[in-house]
Design a protein around this nucleic acid. Structure first.
Lengths: 205, 205
DNA sequence: CAAATGCTAACTGTTGACAGTTGCCAGTGG
DNA sequence: CCACTGGCAACTGTCAACAGTTAGCATTTG
């Protein structure tokens, strides 16, 4: 309900009304809230309740940095572990996304997230996958604070292709470089959609 | 209580007896269990209860890989952001650890964890810090499955020094290389303490 | 008129009790 | 003697009610 926007960002979660809507008691609901707290989707204030988390610009930048840490490492692992079939599967996935996008001009981020999560999954590290999924959830929540901007689809797909090509050549350096700039672009796009610019005086390298 | 071993690894958490010991009711205890579940310290089985999580060898290797992803990225960020004072503080910290170790031959891992967490904190990314702390908690729980092995203290300290020296020279490549081998050694040491070896046929680079 | 104070309603924090499920053990039949 | 079944005890899942706190509003006072 949080990720779909059914409960708006920043809103308080009223335990009694929500438990009545869901048809459960307050006990299980409070347990669920604690789980969401662990996932970073709500912030709990003592005696005040649980609020759907809001993100400052700095926090969004931090999350993209975290994404970079996780996904760049996944890339490094993939260069050593990915089988030919894995890579061809990724290619097929990209083609399907392209055809789906051509038919239906809507929805740009879900396939993007699918690609990245597939990439991380192929690294074969469950702990890494869990953290990446968590980070994506937080980022999708942060992005939902702005109106959807369906821009940046074609360029993203092109960058995905470049990543897979680098992986096929087992070129770690190229793959990580492309992924890093890809995430930089995604961050800037997200921040632009949210209104303002970044601070970072550090994109020379 | 889990991290200190007061509740042994693999044990079931009896809600009624534990809530009686802690002087609280089962409701808050169940909420706490859900939080621990989010932190990956317990696994909850429906109608069976919460069990202090046990780790397979593969999962421990995955956790060290996750550590590498987070801490190597922290190193990269530090090379750009760390001030001279930050680095001198790290140096002082290492010296204090050495003198403390010379006086008291016990306790090897806590200062190690302190150093790494300090390193990550200096990167100035709260999301990164949170995940690193979580991973360290899981690893300390995994290590607690074996008897403490206070070996490997001097070499670890030496490697810490080498990391700081590389950071002072702003040599990203050297710093990440040292950190990577440091974590490799830590992993092998932990696995050895737990009984058996790793599988990885991939430590040539 | 403005600031401080007391009151009230709404909500969270916690508790104890009830219902449903699981695992174990004795008893029974092959 | 072994496998199976029925019953039982312990425990988890859930609920409704009570206590304590917070925020807002009306009232009072300088």
């Amino acid at each position: 309900m949080i990720l779909t926007g059914e409960i708006p960002v920043g809103a308080r979660i009223n335990e009694v009304t929500l438990s009545a809507e869901l048809g459960v008691s307050r006990g299980p609901l409070r347990e669920a809230v604690q789980r969401l707290r662990g996932e970073g989707l709500v912030t709990v204030i003592s005696h005040r309740g649980a609020f759907v988390r809001t993100f400052e610009v700095d926090e969004i930048i931090d999350l993209y940095e975290l994404r970079a840490a996780l996904e760049l490492h996944a890339i490094r692992l993939l260069c050593r572990r990915a089988s030919a079939k894995d890579l061809s599967d990724l290619d097929e996935m990209l083609l399907q996304t392209e055809t789906a996008m051509r038919a239906d001009g809507d929805r740009v981020y879900p396939p993007d997230m699918d690609f990245h999560m597939r990439l991380v999954s192929l690294a074969g590290n469950q702990a890494l996958v869990a953290r990446a999924l968590e980070t994506h959830h937080q980022l999708s929540l942060a992005r939902s604070m702005s109106a959807r901007s369906p821009v940046r689809a074609q360029t993203a797909i092109a960058e995905h292709h470049a990543i897979v090509e680098s992986l096929k050549r087992q070129d770690v350096h190229a793959a990580t470089d492309v992924m890093e700039s890809h995430l930089d672009h995604a961050r800037e796009s997200a921040l632009a959609a949210l209104g303002l610019k970044a601070r970072d005086p550090e994109l020379s390298a």
